[in-house]
Design a protein around this nucleic acid. Structure first.
Lengths: 116, 116
DNA sequence: CTGTATCCACCTTGATACTG
DNA sequence: CAGTATCAAGGTGGATACAG
């Protein structure tokens, strides 16, 4: 049984879709950032503390990419000093299934490997 | 609404699960290899041709990792010359949901970005 | 506070050639 | 055929310092 149907017509499109998804969500930090933002709006500093160990340079880059992919919005608050908030877009809900599926598999897999 | 429930007791466990899943399935090639093997048993050379562009060194490494994670089995065939077959394990079915979810998101996302 | 700049170590991948 | 060895190159992320 195939993981996906072997349909010649849309096979290439599906491969591209996989590549897209992995590009958008993959890497070391993206899903953790989304995860944290799923609990509510957060500032740069908050994220830096919660996404344990990430440096400002990398966090900055990751946030920019998530914003380009329409998954988060960046808001500059007119406070003193200026603060910046990051929030999930409603579109980010589309990632919910993926993240849940990854988490489920991760939980199953840890058990599986332990009994090896 | 949170992508996952905010349950302090299992939050760390879930983060670890995400990390695990990304480690096992992430990277540039793993999912494509699984995808190809989902159509049936394949030899090293076949995979190299189908997973377009992968070099033997990298393919070899990826296959070893997938085997360690119990997702594929490696079989040496007593032919002349010797051939080697790779097959999905039944456990690999557990990745089906993840791959499907990634593909769905990828398809949605491509549309979303185009209309940007 | 919210980043950016610089420098650097590492890892991953690739090209190519080669072995059993 | 099924890989491994070697070397080179690029990207990625980290440490640290600094700027607006």
């Amino acid at each position: 049984m195939a993981l996906v149907e072997s349909n010649k017509d849309n096979c290439k499109e599906k491969f591209m879709a996989l590549r897209d998804a992995i590009d958008v969500l993959g890497g070391k930090w993206k899903i953790y950032i989304l995860q944290n933002l799923s609990f509510g709006t957060m500032r740069f500093k908050d994220l830096q503390e919660r996404v344990c160990g990430i440096t400002p340079k990398v966090l900055s880059k990751e946030l920019r990419e998530l914003e380009e992919n329409l998954l988060i919005t960046r808001t500059v608050n007119d406070t003193k000093p200026i603060t910046v908030s990051y929030t999930l877009t409603s579109y980010a809900m589309e990632t919910k299934v993926v993240i849940a599926a990854l988490m489920d598999f991760g939980l199953i897999h840890r058990k599986k490997i332990k009994e090896k």
